[in-house]
Simulated assay, not measured.
Amino acid sequence: MSYTVNCSILLTDLPLLERPAAARAAGFGAVEFWWPFETSVPGEKDIDAFVAAIRDAGVQLTGLNFNAGDMPGGDRGLVSWPDRSQEFNDNLDVVAAIGERTGCRAFNALYGNRQGGVDAAAQDELGVENLARAGQAVARIGGTVLLEPVSGTPAYPLKTADAALGIIAQVAATGVDNVRLLADFYHLATNGDDVEAVIEAHAADFGHVQIADAPGRHEPGTGNLPLQRWIARSRELGYAGPVGLEYKASQQDPFAWVSTWSTAGVGA
């Protein structure tokens, strides 16, 4: 099994730029991040330091979010947010450049919450336009844009795989075909989606998979989701990418479960 550690939600006892090395020390060869900067267009020194932290740790950056706004404050993306659309577009070339330098080819574009006083259809029209622009921006490096259903935020409109796939189909109709579903099994299950049906219908086309257990969004084995079965079935049906570990640590060793899964023949 190929895992990639989300260093924006794990290893948070360390400064952000020390986390790739900590992931490497824990036995992982790949990491992913939410947007690690405060603005859409950070300074070159900040970008260089981020890239150096990845390189010096000897890990592969497998995923990076576009700027999604103030995540701790409740923002969940700029893609469909009219007042911040320019920020999103300003971010595109920066993200593509980081991808080019690091070899990262998967980029998560959080769709954005519904905004009061703005027509939902108008937000969706903007969302499709901006996702198409994002797809074009990363296509030059062979990149893929990921679109993710999210739980825990009522104002976020994409809560099921079908909702995200509907937007992806609209983007594809514009001629941009490198936007894919990010199947986060925790978010899908928490929102009441039929995860097994999603896997059966779409696993071969998943752009990425992420996991956390539910309830709690903690380590695999702390909840009741059949994550091992879902991952194995996704593999059987053609998903060949890494599995993102995007959960909140609740134990002293947040990766202790990996050896248990390895013993069962489904880890490592």
Score class of each variant (00 low, 15 high):
148 E>N: 11
55 R>H: 09
20 P>C: 03
57 A>H: 11
185 F>D: 07
135 G>T: 12
83 D>Y: 07
48 D>L: 12
260 T>P: 00
88 F>E: 03
173 A>T: 01
118 V>M: 04
37 F>C: 06
161 A>T: 15
263 T>G: 15
250 S>G: 15
157 P>M: 05
30 A>T: 06
263 T>D: 15
95 V>M: 11
258 V>A: 09
47 I>M: 05
82 P>C: 01
93 D>G: 03
15 P>D: 05
131 L>I: 10
67 N>R: 08
180 R>G: 01
214 A>C: 07
34 W>L: 13
41 V>Q: 14
245 L>V: 09
126 L>V: 00
245 L>D: 03
203 A>M: 05
160 T>A: 11
121 A>S: 09
23 A>Y: 06
188 L>E: 05
146 L>H: 09
87 E>H: 07
53 A>W: 01
24 R>P: 04
29 G>T: 12
145 V>T: 06
176 V>C: 02
48 D>K: 14
102 T>H: 00
3 Y>P: 09
243 V>G: 14
34 W>F: 14
150 V>P: 10
92 L>T: 04
209 V>H: 14
26 A>W: 09
90 D>H: 08
126 L>Q: 03
234 S>F: 04
37 F>T: 04
85 S>F: 01
191 N>R: 11
253 D>V: 15
165 L>S: 08
168 I>A: 10
218 H>C: 11
23 A>I: 04
241 G>E: 04
79 V>G: 02
256 A>K: 09
195 V>P: 08
115 Q>G: 03
198 V>N: 05
89 N>C: 04
118 V>K: 09
266 V>R: 12
31 V>K: 14
239 Y>A: 09
218 H>F: 14
238 G>L: 08
190 T>W: 02
22 A>C: 07
265 G>N: 11
60 Q>V: 07
267 G>T: 11
128 V>E: 01
268 A>H: 06
96 A>K: 05
146 L>W: 03
103 G>C: 01
130 N>E: 02
5 V>G: 13
216 G>R: 12
223 G>I: 14
111 Y>G: 00
39 T>Q: 10
161 A>E: 10
88 F>L: 11
14 L>K: 15
72 P>F: 01
216 G>Y: 13
265 G>Y: 13
137 A>N: 01
167 I>G: 06
111 Y>L: 04
258 V>M: 02
18 E>G: 10
42 P>M: 09
113 N>A: 04
19 R>Y: 06
144 T>R: 10
143 G>R: 08
75 D>F: 08
73 G>N: 02
242 P>G: 11
15 P>T: 12
72 P>L: 05
264 A>E: 14
125 E>Y: 00
129 E>N: 13
56 D>F: 00
162 D>P: 04
225 L>M: 12
60 Q>H: 15
73 G>Y: 00
10 L>R: 08
215 P>S: 12
255 F>W: 15
244 G>M: 10
16 L>W: 09
129 E>S: 12
36 P>D: 05
230 W>N: 12
155 A>K: 13
151 S>L: 04
234 S>R: 06
32 E>N: 03
64 L>D: 04
128 V>G: 03
237 L>I: 07
154 P>I: 14
38 E>F: 15
79 V>W: 01
191 N>W: 02
75 D>N: 12
170 Q>C: 13
105 R>Q: 07
85 S>M: 00
70 D>F: 10
144 T>D: 08
102 T>E: 02
71 M>E: 12
62 T>W: 07
